[in-house]
Computed example of a mutant assay.
Amino acid sequence: MTIATEIPTRTLVESLVREDATIDAGELYDVAAALGMSDQQVRLCIKRLVAEGQFTHEGRGRKAVLRATADTRGVLEPDLEYLRLMYAQDRGQAGWDGVWHLAAFAVPESQRTARDGLRDAIVGLGGAPIQGGLYVSVHAWEDRIRSAAAGLGVAGQLTTATTGDLEVGGVTAVRALAARLWPLERLAAGHERLLASAEHTLRTLPSADPTECLTLAVALAAEFSRALEPDPLLPPELLPRHWVGTTARKAVAECWVALDSAALPPIRLFRWYAGVVADITATT
């Protein structure tokens, strides 16, 4: 079995947290070996995570058990609402209302850290820069941006607005605007890689042993996160027709269904993904 996806050791460890917040070290070392990681590489990563207070460590070697701390458990959960919206859009169940959401800020150099933090929060929510300090999204993000600005101490320097009419550099057609504002070619390339990973998983799963199943699931989850992290979840009305992201995510959903029935250990991340797919399927 060949896995082309590059997976950081930390990502591997975090991916194998079970529903009881533990990691079976033997399972971890087996999957790491299948991904081409050495035991020493895994041991060093575990040592760092324990030193950072992310995990506790009980026992030795492959018989050890790692346990995620409360803080770690809190940050490992994916944004389930984001995933539900993603699949709802793909299935035509969440159309766009035609509203553009704008956010602008003017934070002085003396508050550079806060300025950078607010910009990162806006971009992380899918915002595209129009010009200096002005960003746009197709989603209602106001509450989350205001919360981020308040946390950074710059709430008074944030402006939000909505409009049904947006023109950038003379462009008004919504698909042309989306292509101008967001890096659609790069997003498409990420989803092409995701589609290839999903197709490989579907081909390989029927003959895979338990360790191979886990390895496939970890690699797919990593590629899924890599493709989705920069994705602003533009509605179909703004995307090129036959958008590869829709095809890739449909294939990934089929993988989670197949993996969920493959008697995998109760891994938290995989159960979350399978649960989202089940929720969306139940509404169709």
Rank of each mutant, 00 (worst) to 15 (best):
D231C: 05
A262W: 04
A155Y: 10
E212R: 04
R60Q: 13
D30L: 12
A221F: 05
L259A: 02
Q131T: 00
P210D: 12
Y273F: 10
L44Q: 14
G53F: 01
L264Q: 11
L80E: 14
G164S: 14
H57C: 06
Q131H: 09
R91N: 14
P232R: 10
E237Q: 15
L187N: 04
D209S: 08
V257G: 02
H191K: 11
L220M: 01
F55P: 05
V174N: 11
A128R: 00
L28E: 09
A263L: 13
A121F: 00
T283C: 13
R10Y: 12
L85R: 12
V138W: 02
A155E: 15
V138E: 13
G169R: 02
R144H: 07
I7M: 11
R60I: 08
V99G: 12
G98N: 02
T246F: 08
V75M: 14
G92Y: 01
H101R: 08
T281G: 11
V75S: 15
F270D: 12
G124R: 10
V107A: 11
P210T: 12
T246Q: 14
A176Q: 14
T2W: 11
W141R: 15
V174C: 11
F105E: 02
V277L: 05
I23S: 01
G26N: 12
Y82M: 07
P206K: 01
I46D: 07
R226H: 15
P230M: 04
T215P: 03
A21D: 15
L125A: 10
P232Y: 05
D231P: 09
T56P: 03
V168K: 00
Y273V: 03
E19V: 15
A258T: 02
P206A: 04
S197D: 08
P235C: 10
Y29A: 04
C255M: 02
L102Y: 00
V154G: 10
P240V: 04
L228K: 02
W272I: 10
H200L: 15
H242M: 15
C45R: 13
T56S: 13
L220Y: 02
R112E: 08
A178S: 07
L202G: 09
G169I: 00
A149V: 09
K63W: 07
Y29C: 08
D116C: 09
W141D: 15
P230I: 08
A253N: 13
E58S: 09
G117R: 03
C255Y: 00
A68F: 01
A94W: 07
A258W: 04
R60G: 10
D71K: 12
D71I: 12
V252L: 00
R268H: 14
P108N: 11
L233C: 04
L233F: 01
A263W: 07
P240C: 06
A251N: 05
E229L: 15
L35H: 07
C45I: 12
V252I: 03
A178C: 02
L76G: 10
G26V: 14
G98V: 06
P183Y: 00
R119S: 06
A4M: 12
E77C: 11
G133Y: 01
Y82E: 14
G190H: 06
G156W: 04
D30M: 14
T11I: 06
